[in-house]
Simulated scan of single mutants.
Amino acid sequence: MPEWIRKLLFWGFIAFLIYFMAFRPDGAANIFKAIGAGLVAMFQGLGDFLTSLAP
């Protein structure tokens, strides 16, 4: 993929995030909470797996 397309997509994504947070703060907060909860669940599962490997 050409470099200019990657830069365009990156800055477009950043602009969308700023727009989304400015005009739909409740929706943006809910999305970030869901992402955070998913990450916590993923690391909790990894921790449980590693704990079960210990003798």
Rank of each mutant, 00 (worst) to 15 (best):
P2M: 11
L53G: 08
N30Q: 11
M1I: 10
G12W: 15
L46K: 00
N30F: 03
F16Q: 04
F43C: 01
V40A: 03
R6W: 05
I5D: 09
G38Q: 13
G45D: 02
A22F: 14
Y19C: 08
A34H: 01
W4C: 14
L39T: 03
I31R: 15
D48N: 01
T51I: 05
F49S: 00
D48T: 04
K7S: 10
L53I: 09
A29L: 12
G47R: 00
G27I: 06
A28R: 13
L50D: 05
K33F: 06
F32I: 09
W11D: 11
F16C: 11
I18F: 10
Y19N: 09
P25A: 09
P55A: 12
M42G: 02
G36T: 06
P25F: 13
F13Y: 11
G12Q: 09
L50H: 03
F49E: 01
I18R: 05
P2C: 10
F10A: 02
F23P: 11
I18N: 02
I31A: 13
D26S: 06
A15Y: 04
A41E: 00
E3D: 11
R6M: 07
F23N: 10
A28C: 09
G47I: 02
I14Y: 15
G12D: 00
W4N: 14
A54D: 06
D26E: 08
L17P: 03
K7W: 07
R24V: 10
A37G: 05
I5T: 07
A28W: 13
L9I: 08
Y19L: 15
E3R: 05
A29V: 01
N30C: 03
A15T: 04
F10W: 13
L8K: 05
P2F: 12
R24L: 13
G47A: 00
F43V: 12
T51M: 10
G45W: 03
K33P: 10
A22G: 03
L8E: 06
A54V: 14
P55Y: 04
F49P: 03
R24I: 14
A29E: 02
S52G: 07
G12S: 04
W11K: 14
M21H: 10
I35P: 10
M21L: 15
